[in-house]
Write a protein that binds this DNA or RNA. Structure first.
Lengths: 271, 271
DNA sequence: GCAAATTTGTTCGTATGTATT
DNA sequence: CAATACATACGAACAAATTTG
């Protein structure tokens, strides 16, 4: 009796989904039907479904119903690459190639370029005074037509005056940002630091990523600071990924290639 | 008018917190008071507070009230270490030393050791048949008295029969697991792969980590598979971290040491 | 194209349970 | 034990999105 009703309902529905009693793509009973099945109020049913959404097991479509998510393979971003070699995963340059390796169709919107004053976190990470102008480049990304991530990169303004004019152009930099900064300014990127946090989306993020704006689906915030040989920050990139369809992998040392893409989302009870 | 009321209330309260109008540790008005202030129902107030909890800005204490979280510095786990050198962050061995570097007091519960049958994800990652016996070692961890993470490691059963008897002892392995396996079995760990996902906690996790069990605070699930020189998995470790007080850092290539611990949680609007 | 029916989203009100002071 | 405050659960109404006739 100690376990709340919404949790028991959620666990029962989860079991049905994991045992394929409810198949991917299938519609769950409506809230009204579930209310009758479990003899609970509509709000209690909705509390139960919220937990399933947080687990990425179902999605709700207003006006239609609640559906078991198609086992859309989660997109896996590898944060660590062979140091020195190819561009790292998750970064602008490597995005398209990494996606195509997984037999998926990637698309990036043209960059929305702007100039703004660096404040707070951005100025601190770029190590420039608050209020200094910075270039921002914002892109929205899709995989197989599904909105996947939102990325904004920030560069010191003087990169442009020193010769990297394409930074303020609204065109993709095909060769990759690290390569372009090396070519245009002689700045050699030797490493980066990623900082991973989780929070609830703001309304702009929820809107683009097609996730509920009430916080049931959190987002990863990946903040990447790239450095040159002298340890000077070259750029700050913030990427937002919805947690219901994104995962990260970090390889350290010698590791064998993955056997296959993860296909199980099993919740092993580790407690 | 398009933005729901609970969201506008949440944003107003967030502004008050970020401008220190409501100071860390301070109690928010009670739900009843907020209901009067914003002329909203109690459920709407609670929806607004849910978003603040998801952002790690406030916490609710039943019977007491809702409080602005003390700017408990988030614990930052570094997933990538100098390859070859010290034990990696987040793993059992390095946990205590990494924490003390941040001037914090760490404590690990004695391991709860058991033998269970490998199923699903565990057997797949250890590359052993389903149903094979594995050793599990479970620990709960605290920092400065606050529950911080729950970790369970899984080892093939034959490690014990081959000489690693301490694996089934309920004592800490002080020298670190990688070192012990090298000493006892001659198995040399040369790398590992981390796989980061986010989900809602189960009731056991919510109970220990002192987070609401209704999914307002998600958890990181960090799955680490360590490999030896031949690419054979040595162990699988699953660690659960509540997202409201944990962050990860990944360093790739040459990066300068962090200037200081992150102290700002500013939500830069990146959209 | 429009209206009705269906389904989820938001908001209100109320009552009772549980934890803390 | 009583008071306070959050947690759970019930019921109801209207709005917004979608599908169907």
């Amino acid at each position: 009796m100690t376990e709340p009703m919404y949790m028991r309902i959620s666990e029962d529905l989860r079991r049905q989904i994991e045992t394929k009693e409810l198949r991917p793509g299938e519609q769950l009973p409506t809230e009204l039907e579930l209310r009758q099945q479990y003899d609970a109020s509509r709000n209690t049913i909705r509390d139960a479904i919220k937990l399933l959404i947080g687990n990425g097991l179902v999605e709700t479509r207003p006006g239609q119903g609640t559906y078991v998510v198609e086992k859309m393979d989660p997109f896996v971003t590898t944060l660590s690459a062979d140091p020195g070699t190819g561009a790292p995963g998750g970064d602008g340059g490597a995005y398209l190639s990494e996606v195509s390796e997984q037999n998926r169709e990637a698309f990036s919107s043209p960059p929305q370029v702007g100039i703004q004053k660096a404040v707070g976190l951005i100025s601190a990470r770029l190590r420039i005074p608050e209020g200094t102008n910075v270039i921002s480049r914002h892109q929205q990304r899709f995989i197989d037509g599904t909105p996947w991530s939102m990325q904004t990169s920030f560069f010191p303004m003087d990169f442009v005056t020193r010769g990297a004019a394409r930074l303020i152009g609204a065109d993709d930099i095909q060769e990759g940002m690290a390569q372009y900064l090396a070519d245009a300014l002689g700045l050699k990127q030797v490493g980066y630091r990623d900082w991973i946090t989780v929070r609830v989306p703001n309304s702009a993020e929820a809107d683009f990523l097609k996730i509920p704006m009430d916080g049931r689906v959190p987002v990863f915030e990946l903040l990447r600071v790239a450095f040159d040989e002298s340890g000077t920050p070259l750029r700050v990139t913030v990427t937002i990924f919805p947690t219901d369809r994104n995962q990260f992998i970090v390889n350290v040392g010698d590791v064998p290639p993955p056997l296959s893409l993860p296909k199980e989302d099993d919740q092993e009870r580790t407690g």
